[in-house]
Design a protein around this nucleic acid. Structure first.
Lengths: 223, 223
DNA sequence: GTCTATACAGTGATAGAC
DNA sequence: GTCTATCACTGTATAGAC
C-alpha cells in the first residue's frame, strides 16, 4: 500500500520471450498435466510471470486460451497427415491400406510427441478434448480436422473397394477410439498388466496398432 | 425475513424419494450432460430440491458424490460381464472369440443404456472418466473393473492360444478405446458422415464392432 | 442423525486507471 | 498494453435448529 511509485523492478524488458508465447507455453503444459479444470488462471499467470489480467487481454477467456492453443498445434498435424497421404499416392496409384493408416496415425501419435508439434502435453490434451461433450471442444476439433479426416475416409474406401461406405465409416470411428485412447494414456492397461504394456510408448503402440486395425478394416462387412 | 415460522409448506413428507436418492439421480443426469466441471453443486441442489449443504453431508464432497454414483452403477455392469462370460463356458469348453467379446461389450453398451443400469447418462459419464487423468477417476475405475477385465484378458488369451500375451493385451487396450469412444458419443463421426453413422445407436454399434475387433484380434502378431 | 443458514477462500472475468 | 481492484460465483466448512 505504501510503495506506490516503485512498480516492477527491471529497468529493461525482463523476459526474452513475449508475454503471449509464454502464456501459451505454460498453459499447454499445465492443462495437459492437470486437466483443463485442474489448473487456474492464477497458476498460469504466476508460472508464466505475467499479470493475471493479461491472459484475458490476449485470449479473451480461459476457453479462448484453449482455442488459441489448439489453433497453433492442430493445423501442422492435419497438414502433415495430408502431406504423408499425398506421398503415398506419389509412390503408387493404389497405396496399401497400412500405408494410409500410417499416414493418418503417425502425425497424431509419433510426431505429436516431438516438441515442434507440441510434445506429449498436447497429445494428451487433444485426447481429452476428443471425449468432452462441450460444444466448444467439438467445434474446435471439427474446424481443425474435418477436412483431413474426410480425405482419409475416402482414401480408405478407395483402398477397400468392396467394403460398403457405411462400414468404412464405422471402422474409422473405431480407429479414432483406439487412437484417442492411446493418446490419452489413461493408465488402465498399465494397471491391468503391471506396467508391461505402455501406450505412452507411441512408436511401439503404432507398430501394434496398424496391423490390428488393418485386419479389422479388411474383415467381411456386417450384413 | 418475516415469514420466520412458516418454513416449507408440506405437512407430510413432500417427496416420495429420499434426499440421497434424488441427489444421485440428478447428479448423474447433469454430470453426463454437462461434464463433471460443467455443473455446480448449487445446480444439483436446486434441481433435486434439496439444500446445498445436504450434498456435502451425504457424500462429503463433489468427488465423493461422483464416487458414490459409480459404486452404485459399476458393480452391476462388472457382475453382468462375469455372468455372461460364465454362460459362454457353460455352453462349450472353448467359446468363440466373438462370444467373449460380446460378453464384455454388451453390458457396457447395450445393457448400459437400460434404466436399471443407469441409462445413457451413466454410459457417457463412464466414458468421460475413462480418459480423465485425475488419480481419483483412475482409482474408481480400477476398483470397479480390474477383476473382470483381467478375467476377460485371460479368456481372450485362451481363445487365441497362438497369440503372445503382450499382443493380446495391446489389442485389449485398443478394444477399450473403441468401446469408450463409442460410449462417449463425441459427435465426431456424425459430423464426418452427415449423421449417417450414429454411435448412440448402441445395438448397431455393437453389431459392427464385434466382427471388426475379432478380426483384429485374430490377425498375425507383430514380430 | 438429518437438515438448514451462513460464511469463507478460491475461481474466471471485467472495468477503468495509468 | 499492462496493471489494480473488484465482481459474481464456485466448492467447502461449520454452527446450530429440529
Amino acid at each position: 500500500m505504501v510503495k506506490a511509485r516503485v512498480k516492477n523492478a527491471p529497468s529493461r524488458k525482463a523476459a526474452a520471450a513475449p508475454v503471449r508465447e509464454r502464456i501459451l507455453e505454460v498453459a499447454e503444459r499445465l492443462f495437459a498435466e492437470h486437466g483443463m479444470s485442474g489448473v487456474g488462471l492464477r497458476a498460469i499467470s504466476a508460472d508464466a510471470k505475467v499479470n493475471l489480467a493479461s491472459i484475458a487481454y490476449h485470449f479473451g477467456s480461459k476457453d479462448g486460451l484453449l482455442e488459441a492453443l489448439f489453433a497453433q498445434r492442430a493445423a501442422p498435424i492435419a497438414e502433415e497427415r495430408l502431406r504423408l497421404l499425398a506421398a503415398c499416392y506419389e509412390k503408387t496409384k493404389r497405396p496399401k491400406l497400412e500405408e494410409i493408416l500410417d499416414a493418418f496415425l503417425r502425425p497424431a501419435l509419433v510426431l505429436g510427441v516431438e516438441p515442434r508439434f507440441g510434445g506429449p502435453a498436447f497429445v494428451k490434451l487433444r485426447a481429452r478434448l476428443a471425449t468432452e461433450p462441450e460444444a466448444l471442444s467439438r467445434k474446435i476439433l471439427a474446424k481443425a480436422f474435418d477436412l483431413s479426416s474426410r480425405k482419409f475416409i475416402d482414401a480408405i474406401a478407395a483402398a477397400l473397394p468392396d467394403l460398403p461406405r457405411a462400414e468404412v465409416e464405422w471402422r474409422f470411428h473405431f480407429m479414432l477410439g483406439a487412437m484417442f485412447y492411446t493418446m490419452a494414456d489413461s493408465g488402465r492397461i498399465q494397471a491391468l498388466t503391471k506396467g508391461r504394456i505402455d501406450p505412452g510408448d507411441v512408436r511401439r503402440a503404432l507398430r501394434h496398432m496398424i496391423p490390428y486395425l488393418a485386419a479389422g478394416f479388411r474383415s467381411a462387412p456386417v450384413t
